[in-house]
Design a binder for these strands. Structure first.
Lengths: 214, 214
DNA sequence: GTCTATAAATGGATAGAC
DNA sequence: GTCTATCCATTTATAGAC
């Protein structure tokens, strides 16, 4: 409370509060959707599940999102925003690092997010979600922004000789993206033999150093 | 026709013919299922689609397979058998090659099958298919056989110094398995910039040599 | 905006004639 | 063993009261 003398808060503040509640609810929904997408993928996720886990009626979901695809898109966009925020942090905190180390940091972040069960799996091939996503400006713009920033590091790393110059930058970019849905993480986790940190190091090693000895 | 004097073929031959027809029909079904599994995954594949593409009534599918999971399992087992046949061929045709080159040949085969749109995507995380597969003896036995044979090569390749000794063999094995569902193939194919052969070489390079220069 | 109730559509599986 | 027709459960989406 800012003022105790006023029995009625000013209108703008009140609307802002309601809006905050609205956004908080939406955020809770997206968090649940995000986890379910990571766990079982778009097709296997049902809105009944979402509604139950969030603790609202299924019909209420439609007051926030117009369809299942729209719901999933919101989760994908939020993850993209998280990634962009991480890139911001990388660029401001460690701007002096070698480009190849920046790329490694990105791969590490991606792997850690996936190990935490928070990486929504991208829609397989010809999903209905895919069509919606490619028409979602926030998603497409975010993806392009990330690609541009990673692309600059890739070019720089190839120029300074730390990254294999024989690979087209786009191949490097996609290889890094693929770390976000690498089934090896789940396989290794399933053995119960390794800690998350060990798994991260192994996958990072195979990604940047390859399987052959050096 | 073997004989024109007999108006009625011998019973065993007739039954064998029917059996062949039966197997041929089943094979056609499995081929369609295999492609659909590769295209859209288990959840998104519907039995209506399968029936239409095969050209039979949906109910007829149940004369051959008792459930959707059973149907998909048959496709997975057949792919496993194809893989084992390839391993047989590798071991007899090129038994003198270095273990690491045998592993590369396996990875190349896996990539080529996937590029041909014939690699059924493994069930994501907690699918109903996964439970059925882990109880399918043919599948589990086949997977163990493949793992054993690849495992021997991995150990040998680490012993002769061609494969990174710091990686647990199981991590190498899973990394090779993951080439069978590598989204990088689809990404690169989607650009339209590269032939399948080029994509194969790039992915093989990143897998065995890594992203960093050598 | 949240709820209960229900519509509308889909998809896995079965019945029964041939 | 194949077909048509149907059942039944699930799931996306909406109507309408509060």
């Amino acid at each position: 409370m800012v003022s105790v003398t006023s029995s009625k808060p000013p209108a703008p503040a009140k609307r802002s509060f309601r809006e905050q509640m609205h956004l908080a609810r939406e955020d809770a929904i997206i968090t649940v959707v995000n986890r379910l997408l990571a766990e079982k993928g778009f097709e296997a996720m049902t809105l009944d599940e979402v509604a139950i886990e969030v603790g609202v009626a299924k019909a209420s979901l439609y007051k926030h999102f117009s369809s299942k695809e729209d719901l999933a898109s919101a989760a994908m966009v939020r993850m993209m925003d998280r990634a962009r925020a991480f890139l911001d942090k990388l660029q401001s905190d460690a701007a002096d690092r070698r480009p190849v180390d920046q790329l490694k940091a990105v791969a590490r972040w991606t792997i850690e997010v996936q190990l935490a069960g928070e990486m929504p799996s991208l829609p397989s091939q010809n999903s209905s979600l895919r069509a919606v996503l490619t028409n979602n400006k926030a998603y497409v713009d975010g993806l392009m922004d990330i690609s541009d920033r990673l692309g600059a590091w890739i070019i720089a790393a190839q120029a300074d000789g730390s990254l294999n110059r024989a690979l087209p930058p786009i191949a490097v970019l996609y290889t890094l993206y693929a770390r976000g849905c690498d089934p090896v993480l789940g396989f290794l986790k399933g053995t119960g033999l390794y800690e998350d940190e060990q798994i991260t190091e192994m996958v990072l090693s195979t990604c940047f150093e390859g399987l052959q000895s050096r």
